[in-house]
């Protein structure tokens, strides 16, 4: 079995304080910022994500790893911006109008970030027009809509329609306790995630289909 790079291992183990030095060592060795993200950091978070999927670890442990990765990105992001490199995928996420439940939405946002997506979180009680405006501004590849109440499911339908009517090509994935795959299809969403744990797979499936 190949030994993991020390930076990858530090991310997996959440050894945040070691990360800046390890990133600097990579840069000193001539690695560019993009390859450090792709070849050192993302593989670490992939291992963490796999462990989570196998129920070996929990969200708190995953967040420790995510914070370690964030330490690296603090150093790398200015370099990535200077080189014109953006994350491969950008997503917008929010809880639909009339609904203020956000822990599920926050978990999905956290997991998408861990999968190296740029995530713009619009918060809770988000009117359809605000989604449309944000989509026009940020041009994301993916939009995530969340609802917990049966009585805010109609707002999810309205939001999907508003996005479609705006004519901006974007994939929409929906989720939340009362949401079903059938409802997602009925309102014209592209994807459905039954819980936060499967949101990364649901997103990547849609994004791969797009590619």
């Amino acid at each position: 079995m190949n030994e993991l790079h020390p930076l990858t291992q530090a991310v997996i183990n959440g050894r945040r304080k070691e990360v800046p030095d390890l990133v600097q060592q990579c840069l000193d060795a001539g690695e560019d910022a993009k390859s450090i993200v792709q070849d050192r950091l993302v593989p670490g978070m992939t291992v963490v994500g796999e462990r989570f999927k196998k129920n070996e670890i929990f969200v708190p442990e995953m967040l420790v790893a995510a914070r370690a990765m964030k330490e690296a990105l603090k150093i790398l992001e200015p370099l990535l911006v200077a080189a014109g490199v953006r994350p491969e995928h950008t997503a917008i996420i929010g809880t639909v109008e009339g609904d203020l439940h956000d822990i599920g939405k926050n978990l999905v946002a956290m997991m998408w970030k861990g999968a190296n997506m740029e995530v713009i979180d619009l918060g809770v009680n988000v009117p359809p027009a605000k989604f449309v405006e944000a989509i026009a501004q940020h041009k994301p590849h993916l939009v995530g809509l969340s609802a917990l109440l049966t009585t805010t499911m109609p707002a999810m339908r309205t939001t999907v329609k508003a996005i479609r009517d705006a004519g901006i090509p974007v994939k929409i994935v929906v989720g939340g306790a009362p949401i079903t795959r059938e409802f997602a299809e009925e309102i014209g969403a592209d994807g459905y995630s039954r819980d936060a744990g499967s949101a990364v797979d649901a997103a990547l499936e849609l994004l791969r289909a797009k590619a």
Partner: peptide
């Protein structure tokens, strides 16, 4: 109950 449901979904430890 948020904690309980998150634990049911294996997001956080049941002990916690």
């Amino acid at each position: 109950n948020t904690a309980m449901v998150l634990a049911e979904q294996k997001m956080i430890p049941r002990v916690f």
